[in-house]
Structure formats: structure tokens, C-alpha cells
């Protein structure tokens, strides 16, 4: 029934093992010493009531809570943990087929000698992406959301407990390929990185504004294909700026390596930011390929 965790008929699975439904069972957090989730009781105020004998005691309760309160509370716990352990967490978001996994594999190859890394892979079905990551030697957890269309903070919390996360390391979360739903769910990540490949069309930021609104960095991928596709790079960036003025943009080709150095520099700066050395540079930087 539930698409968040897959309880009832649609089971979310972490490495093929059914995940514990978080709605009906307390999340087990003890072994990382994260305190059990405490969500504030609703600030319920009875506005009116009927007390006449024999009548139903209907009353109005004022709740005034965000629908995503539970997710956001768990995301805060995740973020606190990452922050305390100086772990940089990058949530990769895009439509299916924009090159998230290829980017991840090639990024890991460049950084694995310098940083301890881990990956949480989100897909509706199969562990094909996890296998590609595992081939690089980096620990990976595959979450299959079943019918679900996004990862949420509870799924990430349970997955991170199964990963050997090292202090000062780097955790990549590859979200389910979808430019709509994952935008609403805070996972506790340090930054949301949105990929847009040049084969998709430059008007994606206008069509899916929520995703580009929440992004901290936009990667324009598959730039090696620019000569073969009708994609206006400047227009794409201008559309992104309509939604998110000043959004940093890096153009690259994860497959051929152009622009990867700039992406790796951005990661390095962000990593220094979580290590408390300096604040990440978020100034806009549009980088064209030669």
C-alpha cells in the first residue's frame, strides 16, 4: 500500500531483504547511538465542541503540521549524524538514463585513493546499478523501492546502518530516476546534485521546476554529444536560473572525462566544507567545453 517504505503489498527491499515498515514499527537506531525519533506531539487545540447529552462530541482540532513532518524529522537525524562524523553526502537526482551511475563509477575511480566512499543505490527494481558500483571496490547498498518512486529519509537511515561509513568520508545516494517525486523528500544529504543530460532537451528546468529549485548543483552531462543533438546550453542554464537564480552549473562528459576535473574540484571544496575547513563555494560557474 505504501510507496514510502513499501509496507503492505509493495515491499521495499534492501539488497533483496524486505524492509521493516516504518509506519507500524519503531525504527531500530540503537547501534549507532542515534536517539530514537522524537516527533513533537501535534499542537492540537480544540476549537469547538458539542457537549449536549446524547449528541456526538464532535470537535475541531488545529494541527498545523507539515505533511512531511516525519520524513523531515528523520532527515534531520540523518543530517546530524553525517555532520557529526564529517561525512559529505551527495544526493544525485535526475530522470532515468541521464548518466548518474556512469558518473558515479567514474567519480569513484578518480577519488577512491583519496577518500573513503560508500554508495546507496535507489531503483524500483534490480541490483544492476549496485553491481556496477561494487565492481569499483566501494561498499554499496541497493534499495529497491518496489512501486515507490523516490527514496525517503527512513530508507536512507536503514541503509546507512548497513554501510561501513567512515568519518570524513563521502556517501553518494543515487536516487530513483525521476525528476518529480524525489524533489520533495529531504534525505539528510549535504547537497542535492541534479543531472540533466543534453539528450533530454533544454526546457527540463521549466517542465520540472521543483527539482531545479531544490538543487545545489546542476551537472549538464553527455556534453560530448552536443555536436549531434539540438541542445542549447545557454538556454538550458537560463531556464534553470529562472527557477533557481545563481544555481552553480558544471558541464561535463562522465563517459569521456571532459569537465570531470571541475566536478571533482567541487566535491573537494564541499568535502572541505563538511570537515569544517571552509564554506563550499556556491558562486555560479558555467563552464563550457572546448
Amino acid at each position: 500500500m505504501c510507496t514510502t517504505c513499501g509496507c503492505s503489498t509493495h515491499k521495499a527491499r534492501i539488497f533483496g531483504v524486505s524492509d521493516t515498515p516504518h509506519h507500524r514499527a519503531q525504527t531500530r537506531l540503537h547501534y549507532r547511538s542515534i536517539p530514537p525519533q522524537t516527533v513533537q506531539e501535534p499542537q492540537a487545540v480544540t476549537l469547538s465542541a458539542t457537549h449536549a447529552p446524547g449528541m456526538n462530541a464532535k470537535r475541531i482540532l488545529r494541527i498545523e503540521r507539515d505533511i512531511l513532518t516525519q520524513n523531515d524529522a528523520q532527515a534531520r537525524q540523518n543530517r546530524d549524524y553525517f555532520s557529526k562524523h564529517h561525512i559529505l553526502v551527495l544526493n544525485l537526482l535526475s530522470s532515468p538514463g541521464s548518466g548518474k551511475t556512469t558518473l558515479l563509477v567514474n567519480t569513484i575511480r578518480k577519488l577512491r585513493e583519496r577518500l573513503p566512499m560508500a554508495v546507496i543505490e535507489g531503483d524500483q527494481q534490480t541490483d544492476r546499478d549496485a553491481k556496477r558500483i561494487r565492481a569499483t571496490g566501494v561498499p554499496v547498498i541497493q534499495i529497491n523501492t518496489g512501486k515507490g518512486c523516490h527514496l525517503d529519509a527512513h530508507m536512507v537511515n536503514r541503509a546507512m546502518q548497513q554501510l561501513p561509513l567512515q568519518d570524513g568520508g563521502l556517501l553518494f545516494i543515487e536516487n530513483v530516476g525521476n525528476l518529480v517525486c524525489p524533489a520533495s523528500f529531504d534525505l539528510g544529504e549535504t547537497h542535492k546534485v541534479v543531472l540533466l543530460s543534453v539528450t533530454e532537451g533544454e526546457d527540463k528546468p521549466l517542465k520540472y521546476p521543483d527539482m531545479f529549485h531544490v538543487a545545489h548543483l546542476l551537472l549538464l552531462n553527455k556534453c560530448d554529444l552536443l555536436p549531434y543533438v539540438d541542445f542549447d546550453m545557454d538556454q538550458a542554464v537560463q531556464y534553470a536560473y529562472r527557477i533557481h537564480p545563481g544555481l552553480p552549473v558544471i558541464s561535463l562528459s562522465a563517459t569521456l572525462g571532459e569537465g570531470m576535473a571541475t566536478w571533482l574540484d567541487w566535491i573537494e571544496t564541499a568535502h572541505q566544507g563538511v570537515a569544517g575547513k571552509q564554506v563550499p563555494d556556491t558562486s555560479p560557474a558555467v563552464l563550457q567545453l572546448d
Binding site: 510507496t3 514510502t4 501535534p42 520524513n71 520533495s184
Partner: peptide, 21 residues
């Protein structure tokens, strides 16, 4: 499609409020 998750969250918050109130 995430509206289903949102609906689940709404129900969960209603059930919490029912216990408290």
C-alpha cells in the same frame, strides 16, 4: 505518484493525533 506517500503520511499524523488527543 508520491501523493500516495503523502496520503500515508497524513494518515500517520492523524493516528498520532488520535492517540494524543
Amino acid at each position: 505518484m508520491h501523493e500516495m506517500s503523502l496520503a500515508e503520511n497524513v494518515l500517520q499524523m492523524i493516528e498520532e493525533a488520535a492517540q494524543a488527543q
